[in-house]
């Protein structure tokens, strides 16, 4: 079994943030991200206030800072890219610690870093307070195209099955003395990937048959109604509305 990596993102709890309907939280995070992206990069203090808003949400949801920090690792590739821009950037240059850096490049890097970090933290908070399948229910409520929701749903369901299959193939390779040490072993790994793709594709066909057998006709039935009251919308939208107020002040 592929145990051990379930709900890495989700942090079970019963806080007010946990209890909000998923569609409210999804829309709040999306709107917050739009406001952040729309903020001019020169307004340093506005970004500080946004960070404080997120800190307040984390506090209300009882999400410990360590949980958020560890999961921010996903941002690392973007951070590396952001650090490269000032080095290779063009235009006016300045010297920091003996390194000649491009000024527009520095601004661009700051812009990417600040906005991406705020967006990533907001998403981590959403994922920490909402189970993955509930997020999908929310997306369904928000009329996200049903095909996209279905694809995400199947990914959620079959990720462990496929990882498990991958693990078994690795064990089978290694049982016969295979060791992936250098490039020469790459073809064997590539063939395994191909076999895994075929197997998953065939599984997809069998799942489709199972769905047809139970009356599937292209549309997922609406399961688990999650309706939101005006008060719940109000609470959830507090985040983007406060952010919008900050943006208004900064202009």
């Amino acid at each position: 079994m592929g145990a051990g990596h379930h709900h890495q993102l989700y942090l079970p709890g019963a806080s007010a943030v946990h209890r909000l309907p998923p569609q409210c939280k999804l829309l709040a995070v999306f709107a917050f991200a739009v406001v952040v992206v729309a903020t001019p990069r020169e307004r340093f203090w506005a970004f500080g206030l946004y960070a404080l808003l997120l800190a307040a949400v984390a506090w209300a949801a009882r999400v410990p800072p360590g949980h958020v920090l560890r999961r921010m690792a996903i941002e690392l590739p973007f951070v590396l890219f952001a650090f490269l821009i000032p080095v290779i950037g063009l235009g006016e240059r300045t010297t920091v610690l003996g390194l000649s850096l491009s000024v527009p490049g520095l601004w661009a890097a700051w812009n990417i870093l600040a906005k991406a970090t705020l967006g990533v933290v907001a998403s981590i908070l959403l994922a920490a307070t909402t189970e993955p399948r509930v997020i999908l229910l929310g997306a369904q409520r928000l009329r996200v195209p049903s095909l996209l929701v279905q694809i995400a749903m199947f990914m959620l369901r079959y990720l462990d099955v496929i990882l498990d299959e991958m693990r078994r193939m690795r064990v089978a390779r290694e049982s016969r003395g295979f060791e992936a040490r250098d490039v020469r072993q790459l073809p064997a790994v590539a063939r395994s990937a191909g076999a895994l793709f075929i197997r998953s594709y065939e599984r997809g066909e069998r799942v489709h048959l199972a769905m047809l057998s139970r009356g599937y006709s292209g549309r997922m039935p609406m399961l688990g109604e999650v309706s939101a009251s005006a008060a719940q919308w109000g609470v959830a939208l507090l985040l983007p509305v406060s952010a919008l107020a900050v943006l208004g002040l900064s202009l």
């Binding site: 993955p132 399948r133 999908l136 749903m153 199947f154 959620l156 369901r157 079959y158 099955v161 599984r203 069998r206 799942v207 048959l209 199972a210 769905m211 047809l212 057998s213 139970r214 009356g215 599937y216 006709s217 039935p221 609406m222 399961l223 688990g224």
Partner: peptide
């Protein structure tokens, strides 16, 4: 398809929804 209940050999093919409740509800909801 309502009258013939087909149980496939691999339950991972048959159970495609995120929870047991949603999966059992899939047929009757359709």
């Amino acid at each position: 398809r309502r009258r013939v209940g087909l149980v496939f050999q691999d339950p991972d093919d048959q159970l495609f929804m995120p929870t047991v409740r949603d999966d059992v509800a899939f047929g009757p909801a359709n």
